[in-house]
Design a protein around this nucleic acid. Structure first.
Lengths: 324, 324
DNA sequence: CTGAAAGCGCTTACAG
DNA sequence: CTGAAAGCGCTTACAG
């Protein structure tokens, strides 16, 4: 990065003059103006906004960062809305990061973004990532993820899986299938364990299990389509009288398959994103908005006072019985 | 705002010592540590991150701000997703503002946030707001709003309204109603004019018009419910054979009313937000994602080179014929 | 029109 | 353990 000083030296003028040129060129001769402009262009000069705001006294508001791992899904949008509303009454700014494929790209710069705090959504940080934040005094809080010894607000996925099982059982289902994804994260493990556990309590198990390959940033529709195909496969292969879909969009595909096959059996999704209400899908509601809201409030506390006590909060999902 | 210097003076120590205390307290006697800490607490000292990053050389990435006026609606979320993806390949950060009720609150601080550029979504800026940005050299771009002489990417609402009319006409509707909102913004005026214009071309007009009171940050469901009630009213008052809803959520309420009344007539919404596909709602699709994407790319250009040429782009809506 | 200087608020060797 | 000083990159009176 070139500075005003280098330009000044090359142009043979003082830094004050360079500054004047760069700020509109008042009180500068045409000749020096052109010379300075040319050199700064040649050096590809970019003014340092940090230095500028220090002298101007134009400080930006303190900022809370939010890190998501995948492109914006309705579930995350709902969390974001909650965070947004939680932060709104305060003076905090909201900065959004999305790791997408390459997470180091994001995590490497976060410690240097001068954040007052950061919310990490649905993903585990590596020890190195945590160390970086701690070293720079940036408090963080997990959302939708639990880790021993760290601040977190998480959803009770075990319980959620249990609720799904209870619902299917209440509908007299006994030959139950599961349509999920092939990623092994905390949310999946817990939800699956809770579901299976409840079935086993009742002397049952999962008759058939289909997993969808998840790729980062795949559009919504693709999963729905995949699930549609798997559901058809499922129903052709086995005798099934109830299906638990790992998330609502999978259930949407299932709904289409069921309709096409003229089959009627209880199914349940997970999340309760916007379309589910309209499709009358029975599902396990994750209070995403509430999660975001609580997250915003908690990270503000952490930003204000790093007393060091670890904060944990568990939010329980809720069964939404509709007509599937 | 108190500074390290004041603390130093009050504590009777040098600024370097204060700095050491505030950064973990290495190499400081217990006594001075406590003294400094107490004073800084008393003054409610907050370190100036700008100064800190200047000396540390920890600069945050350049940032693009986005200003929305209302709490996050699916339409805006889709725009945001587009902006997000457009910015992703670059190094730009994304900062979100929502004016909510009090816009001056947001606009007053935006010029001082050291933004590389700002996207203003669906609202007109006052001359003073524009002046503030221009004075601080912050380029801006309207999204979903057109203003002569300013950079903007806008949606062709006139054309969209026309498409809605054409659809209803194609369904042989002749006694047409309109359910809208009682705000008078550019989007409304254009859309309405386009709709009415097309009807008049065919020797028709609007038989009945109902407007819903919009309040900032009202939840989604409320509008749906309002529209449900108005639709019932409408159908009881007049003979109607086609309805244009100003936006999809109004149409959802209409759909419910129609179903309850056992009526079958062509209706069309506007936006094509996520649930519309599932409800099989015919609607005018606003390419929100595309708008956001183009917005991100354009604001980056503006941030890189303020040549001064005004950029304008018009995005056309698209008729999505489904089963209503 | 121009340069030297002071200063924004902080950190960090350095000498004591 | 501590203070004085230099410096981060810029802006802005001030004197010429």
């Amino acid at each position: 990065m070139s500075t005003i000083k280098e330009i000044a030296k090359l142009a043979g003028v003082g830094v004050g003059t360079v500054s004047r040129v760069l700020n509109g060129g008042q009180n500068v001769s045409q000749e020096t103006l052109e010379k300075v402009l040319e050199i700064s262009r040649k050096l590809n000069y970019k003014p340092n906004k940090t230095a500028r705001s220090l002298v101007k006294g134009h400080y930006s508001q303190p900022t809370i960062g939010v890190v998501f791992t995948v492109a914006i899904h309705p579930f995350f949008q709902e969390i974001l809305k909650g965070i947004y509303h939680g932060l709104k009454p305060s003076h905090y700014n909201l900065l959004i990061f999305n790791t997408g494929g390459d997470r180091s790209d994001v995590f490497n710069r976060i410690p240097y973004e001068n954040l007052a705090g950061v919310l990490i959504v649905s993903t585990k940080m590596t020890p190195e990532e945590k160390r970086q934040l701690k070293m720079n005094g940036v408090p963080f809080l997990y959302l939708d993820y639990f880790e021993q010894g760290e601040n977190s607000i998480y959803l009770d996925n075990f319980r959620g899986g249990g609720l799904a099982a209870e619902y299917l059982l209440s509908q007299q289902a006994a030959k139950i299938a599961f349509v999920g994804e092939n990623t092994r994260n905390q949310q999946f493990e817990e939800r699956y364990a809770g579901f299976l556990g409840k079935l086993e309590e009742n002397g049952l198990g999962i008759v058939c299990r289909k997993l969808i390959d998840i790729k980062v940033d795949m559009p919504f529709d693709v999963y729905e389509q995949e699930s549609y195909l798997l559901t058809k496969e499922l129903l052709q292969e086995k005798e099934i009288d109830g299906i638990f879909y790992y998330c609502d969009e999978f259930a949407y595909g299932g709904l289409t398959a069921l309709r096409e096959l003229g089959r009627q059996l209880p199914i349940i999704g997970y999340d309760d994103i916007l379309p589910s209400k309209y499709l009358e899908l029975t599902t396990v509601r994750q209070p995403a908005y509430q999660l975001g809201l609580a997250g915003a409030e908690t990270i503000m506390e952490l930003a204000a006072d790093q007393s060091g006590e670890v904060l944990n909060q568990c939010i329980r999902p809720e069964l939404m019985i509709r007509s599937t």
